[in-house]
């Protein structure tokens, strides 16, 4: 977008976002009253278990929540436009140009019968990029090189299934990257890859942010990955953000019992592995059965330790979201 607002204004401003699915007579709130900002050139980790609503949140920003889902928000401002006020044509322009989505299964997101070269040049052509076939191909090769594909020219003529998993993800990233988006939503982009390739892709994403000033929302269940590349982290639980802060602060001083439990279940990187793995007891709740009050309560060790205080059962924890590091817990000071 050419009309950049003041540089200290957030790139993305989300306020009171809800995503609700109606299935039969059930109404499920997958994302429930979530607010946050994404600044320019930062990588924000969005961490949570399955069914915590993190992927739905990503889709809501892309306006790609499937048909049955209803999105409501007080504000979803991207640069200076309300995303949900855009017309179909404006939205098409924003997608690809300014917003890009990268998902876990890169192969499934590519047309199986068209070469990856044609697919990436198609993105450019459909966004009105000037230049003939050779010029667009040159730009595709340039982008392939940027995502560290070892043989960019040869790769152009390949079909998606002919590439390795790591190459598929690089090509998918290149497709998202080719028009220079301002914000990339990366939903578990490395989960399906083996560890060495994972590290390369993470380094690649970090490099893109450092070189281009792009922002990334990095959706993952893996705290180790967050520690590796994110600047800030939002911890999601049962459709809500329960803790937010700079990665260093959150990891050094987790304020929410859920975050503490997550960190405790990580294996130590050095020293002896523990005899017994620490796990969070119970299952994350499903969107149609969110507990009352604090949603982590049924699994919360602090709630047990404090003798099951009534506040946890009856009221949502209030938080001051203006401070850099906060958590939605009635007993933040008891940690």
């Amino acid at each position: 977008m050419s009309t950049a607002a003041g540089s200290d204004a957030p790139l993305l401003h989300v306020e009171e976002l809800c995503v609700e699915f109606t299935i039969g007579s059930h109404r499920l709130r997958a994302v429930d009253d979530v607010s946050f900002d994404i600044g320019r050139g930062e990588i924000v980790g969005l961490v949570g278990e399955s069914a915590s609503g993190k992927s739905t949140l990503g889709l809501a920003i892309m306006r790609m929540v499937p048909g049955a889902g209803r999105v409501s928000a007080k504000s979803m401002k991207f640069v200076d436009q309300e995303l949900y006020d855009l017309t179909a044509a404006e939205l098409r322009h924003v997608r690809g140009n300014d917003l890009a989505l990268i998902v876990q299964d890169a192969l499934a997101t590519m047309n199986p019968v068209i070469t990856v070269g044609e697919q990436i040049t198609q993105v450019m052509r459909d966004h009105g990029e000037k230049g003939g076939r050779s010029e667009l191909r040159r730009r595709a090769v340039h982008t392939f090189r940027e995502v560290r594909l070892s043989e960019p020219e040869e790769t152009l003529g390949k079909f998606p299934h002919e590439l390795s998993g790591g190459m598929q993800q690089r090509v998918a990233i290149a497709q998202g990257l080719v028009l220079g988006p301002l914000l990339i939503i990366a939903d578990e982009p490395t989960t399906a890859l083996d560890v060495t390739v994972q590290a390369q892709i993470l380094a690649l994403l970090r490099g893109i942010v450092d070189d281009r000033g792009t922002s990334i929302i990095f959706i993952t269940h893996d705290l180790a990955t967050v520690a590796e590349i994110c600047d800030r982290v939002l911890v999601m639980y049962a459709g809500r953000i329960v803790e937010a802060g700079a990665v260093g602060d959150v990891f050094a001083d987790p304020m929410h019992p859920y975050t503490r439990a997550l960190l405790a279940s990580l294996l130590p990187l050095d020293g002896e592995p523990p005899d017994v793995l620490t796990a969070i007891p119970g299952q994350p709740p499903q969107p149609d059965e969110w507990p009352t009050g604090c949603r982590f309560r049924p699994r919360c060790p602090l709630y047990q330790a404090l003798g099951e205080p009534e506040a946890c059962r009856t009221t949502d924890p209030l938080v001051d979201e203006t401070v850099p590091h906060w958590a939605a817990c009635h007993f933040v000071d008891e940690r």
């Binding site: 892309m62 790609m64 690809g96 890009a100 499934a108 997101t109 590519m110 993105v123 966004h127």
Partner: peptide, 20 residues
């Protein structure tokens, strides 16, 4: 299919999505 959904996520033209 994810690749068709993602095609609109990449901002491809509706005509492109139908044809290709």
């Amino acid at each position: 299919e994810p690749f068709v959904i993602q095609a609109s996520g990449r901002g491809l033209k509706p005509n492109t999505i139908t044809r290709r």
